[in-house]
């Protein structure tokens, strides 16, 4: 049957910019080499400043998404405030580690801008990713995950530069994702990009190669 990580295909990437972050995924869902769907988004909103990408084993994408929706709703009710990206990252991390010896086959990517608060009036854009059991890394440039990981690293390393404005960041993340998934048999079939700024979110669907 092959590894669950490569069963359905799909890739996610997130990048930082100047007071903005972007997160994007391809739209393919497949059963090994056979493509099944071209509208399978792998990036989900947690609140209006925070997104999570869950590439990997598609059934775990659903399970984790629903589980996280429950946990974040509970947090919201108990705390009467929105969860910050950093707190959410740790929530997800510990959720994954609970299944240390029978993990979800998901490598999450998180992107968001924290709301200004009393202790942090000017919050920085936040991105992070983690492995299947919740080990977090928080680079300052970009994070990638999914079946096109190598290709995403190669292109992103070449295209990304610091302090991109939202529109330039959109172009950079889009070109990176499309270039990478076009060389991956089990990623692609279109893409969706979310650019998160302090006051708005720009979501665009990209046409891509359908082969």
């Amino acid at each position: 049957m092959g590894s669950p990580m490569e069963m359905n295909g799909g890739s996610v990437i997130a990048m930082t910019g100047k007071d903005c972050v972007a997160i994007a995924s391809d739209l393919r869902l497949g059963q090994q080499a056979v493509g099944l769907s071209a509208d399978f988004e792998k990036v989900f909103p947690i609140n209006n400043q925070l997104y999570v990408g869950l590439p990997g084993f598609a059934t775990d994408t659903y399970t984790l998404r629903e589980h996280l929706r429950f946990r974040v709703n509970m947090y919201r009710m108990k705390e009467e405030r929105e969860i910050t990206p950093k707190t959410f990252a740790h929530l997800l991390s510990s959720t994954l580690y609970e299944k240390r010896f029978g993990p979800y086959f998901i490598e999450p990517v998180i992107a968001g801008i924290p709301a200004p608060s009393a202790i942090d009036p000017d919050p920085k854009p936040f991105i992070c990713n983690m492995d299947t059991i919740g080990c977090i890394t928080t680079p300052k440039d970009f994070v990638v995950a999914g079946t096109a990981t190598d290709k995403l690293y190669g292109v992103a390393e070449g295209l990304w530069e610091p302090d991109l404005e939202p529109e330039d960041l959109f172009e950079t993340i889009s070109q990176t994702l499309l270039a990478a998934v076009d060389r991956d048999c089990i990623s692609g079939w279109g893409a969706v990009v979310h650019v998160i700024t302090k006051d708005k979110i720009i979501t665009r669907h990209l046409k891509g190669r359908m082969d």
């Binding site: 190669g154 292109v155 070109q175 270039a179 076009d182 060389r183 891509g208």
Partner: peptide, 18 residues
């Protein structure tokens, strides 16, 4: 070894893909 990192970058920069 780094074909998978290099080739998509060339697709983008040399072949003007997308």
């Amino acid at each position: 070894a780094a074909q998978s990192l290099l080739q998509p970058f060339l697709d983008n920069q040399i072949y003007f893909r997308n």
